[in-house]
Simulated scan of single mutants.
Amino acid sequence: MHQYMADTAAAVLLTGTCDAGWLDNIKAEVVVTMPATMLTGEETGQAELPAGTLVDDDTALMLAGSVSSWTRLFTHPVTGVAVTADVYAPTAALRRFVVHRDRTCRFPGCARIAKHADVDHTKDWQHGGKTTPDNLACLCRHHHTLKHRLGPDEGWKVRQLEPGVL
């Protein structure tokens, strides 16, 4: 009973909700910003948390070496303002933009609404495609799967002439 109460308290504190699965909704995200040169040993003392608190080099490198995925954030060289992030999944705002822009599945003749479609990389992510509006388009699950199953050698060739124009 004590473990149940502790798990419930942790779930409420961390997620704001308490479901029957107690800890199923808890997802931790640790954000540590550091220059790539820190990973190569060229620079030290540059890792920090979002609030600007410095993180010691050993802790930052340990965290960097033990994660299953990374988000590379590219910043303007002068201002330091974030320009783009190198991630597979589009942000919620980018997904909303693409869904509203496309309105329906972009396969010719398909009228399935984009809200329920997959946001697909026109040039595949694994082949260097970026997660940007000019490389994303909505495809219903059927046509998204078909695109990957057939591939470019079986007649499926698509490119974006400009963002949203396929």
Rank of each mutant, 00 (worst) to 15 (best):
T8R: 10
L13T: 13
T15F: 00
G16I: 00
G16Y: 01
G16S: 09
G16C: 09
A20C: 06
A20S: 14
G21L: 07
G21Y: 03
W22G: 00
W22P: 00
I26Q: 04
I26F: 06
E29F: 01
V30M: 15
V31I: 14
T33N: 15
T33F: 12
A36G: 05
T37R: 14
M38N: 05
M38Y: 03
M38I: 04
T40D: 12
T40R: 15
G41V: 06
G41I: 07
G41Y: 10
E43Y: 03
T44I: 13
Q46V: 00
E48R: 13
L49Y: 09
L49P: 05
P50C: 06
A51Q: 11
A51E: 12
G52E: 06
G52N: 10
G52Q: 12
G52K: 10
V55T: 04
V55H: 02
V55D: 02
D56G: 07
D57R: 06
A60T: 04
L61Q: 07
L63N: 00
L63F: 13
A64C: 08
S66I: 04
S66H: 07
S69E: 12
W70I: 07
L73N: 14
L73D: 08
F74Q: 13
T75Y: 11
T75P: 03
H76E: 14
P77C: 06
V78M: 14
T79P: 12
V81F: 03
V81R: 08
A82H: 10
V83P: 04
V83Q: 14
V83T: 14
T84R: 12
D86H: 13
Y88K: 14
Y88S: 06
T91C: 13
A92H: 11
L94V: 01
R96K: 14
V98H: 02
V99I: 14
V99N: 04
R101E: 05
D102E: 08
R103E: 15
C105H: 08
C105V: 02
C105D: 01
F107P: 00
C110R: 03
R112M: 08
R112N: 09
R112Q: 15
R112W: 05
I113R: 12
I113A: 06
A117F: 00
V119E: 00
V119N: 00
D120S: 02
H121S: 03
H121M: 03
H121R: 11
H121T: 08
K123R: 14
D124W: 05
D124L: 04
D124E: 15
W125Q: 07
Q126W: 12
H127V: 08
H127M: 09
G129D: 03
G129T: 09
K130G: 04
T131V: 10
P133A: 11
P133N: 13
L136T: 01
A137N: 06
C138M: 09
L139W: 02
C140M: 01
C140P: 06
H143S: 07
H143D: 10
H144S: 06
H144N: 15
K147L: 03
K147D: 02
K147C: 05
R149Y: 02
L150I: 12
L150T: 11
L150C: 07
P152Q: 09
W156K: 00
K157E: 15
R159S: 15
Q160C: 10
L161Q: 10
L161R: 15
L161S: 13
G164V: 04
V165P: 06
L166D: 07
